[in-house]
Design a protein around this nucleic acid. Structure first.
Lengths: 177, 177
DNA sequence: AATTTACGTCAGCGTTGTTGACTTTCCAAG
DNA sequence: CTTGGAAAGTCAACAACGCTGACGTAAATT
């Protein structure tokens, strides 16, 4: 298999465009490099929080919950389920430990008393900040090193990589309430 | 987005730069948006392969193994461990099923008979292509929609997000052998 | 009054990470 | 040549965190 140079080994190849325009950045090899870059970068992206979480006895699922509760204080369980894209059983396990440990407070809704509104406690905010701080530090370094135009491009590509539904949710997250 | 409001809710805030340059893209809020974009985009990034893998009864770990074996045919288990960043026990389980199912071939090393050199079989290449094809399709669409300059920026930021060691590995992956 | 919705929980399973203990193989020092 | 250690790989058991299914309860809706 290894023999030759080109990509001939691919039987179902979709290699070069037939119209053969000058879109070098769309070759299969460039796309593969992008895929690998995404893989390695995501590892870096989660490395710092992972270390912190381990010290506290939590996992990534806890991080995600804490992050989005901080982002939308008072959010309901159902809303969080939509954002995180997991089952309620899975989320519940995580939320239960966070509530037991006093990082998250669950208040029964006033308008609709079936709903539980979630808030970070002081301790919860402290953990969130520790995690976020570490992640922002890395992000800031990457942004700074790459420069503003690169950041704009980065954000643009990421947005187009999302599923349309997730993209809506991404845009529906705002400051404050 | 979020026009007027500040980020006063953070007690331990590291918000605005003291030197107060014009680096809008480095505000904590922009960084948080970037973090969330990464989160949602990665979901999209893995969504298509996940569906395919499920049909075949595999998981993401299988995808990663198949991907990098395809990328570096004849690679050893140890080399793969470095790239994937998991324990050999974890990788071994995945490799075993792939070998049993006839997607991967493991050849004892000639120079050092402790080593196993890994190759995709015809069936393995078929699966790799199916997965890669789906992922490349999404990547291509995102690249095309964002344009060449955005792609360059995307790649630049991702590179700076990697751990230095991972970045070296990223660059050490090449075509052919 | 009946149905639907929001939430919580129990039970059980699969993937994928972990550590610990073991075999086989290689190599170098005695 | 032998021996002891390092390296590559395998087996066993456990934990985190996804999943499905079933059930219960309270509250809103029809």
């Amino acid at each position: 298999m290894s023999s030759g140079k080109r990509e001939e080994a691919q039987p179902l190849a979709t290699t070069s465009p037939p119209g053969s325009e000058n879109l070098l950045y769309l070759t299969d090899d460039q796309l593969r490099r992008g895929i690998e870059a995404m893989f390695f970068a995501y590892r870096g992206f989660t490395a710092d929080p992972d270390r912190i979480l381990e010290r506290h006895g939590y996992g990534r699922a806890h991080h995600r919950a804490v992050h989005f509760i901080n982002r939308q204080p008072g959010t309901t369980v159902n809303n969080l389920l939509d954002i995180l894209g997991v089952t309620k059983q899975s989320l519940n396990r995580v939320l239960r430990t966070l509530i037991e440990d006093g990082l998250v407070e669950s208040r029964v809704g006033t308008r609709d008393r079936r709903e539980r509104h979630l808030y970070l406690t002081e301790a919860g905010r402290a953990l969130e900040n520790e995690l976020s701080e570490a992640q922002r530090r890395r992000m800031r370094a990457a942004y700074r090193a790459a420069g503003p135009e690169a950041v704009a491009g980065f954000r643009k590509v990421l947005e187009h990589m999302m599923d349309p539904e997730l993209r809506r949710q991404f845009h529906s997250i705002r400051e404050g309430r």
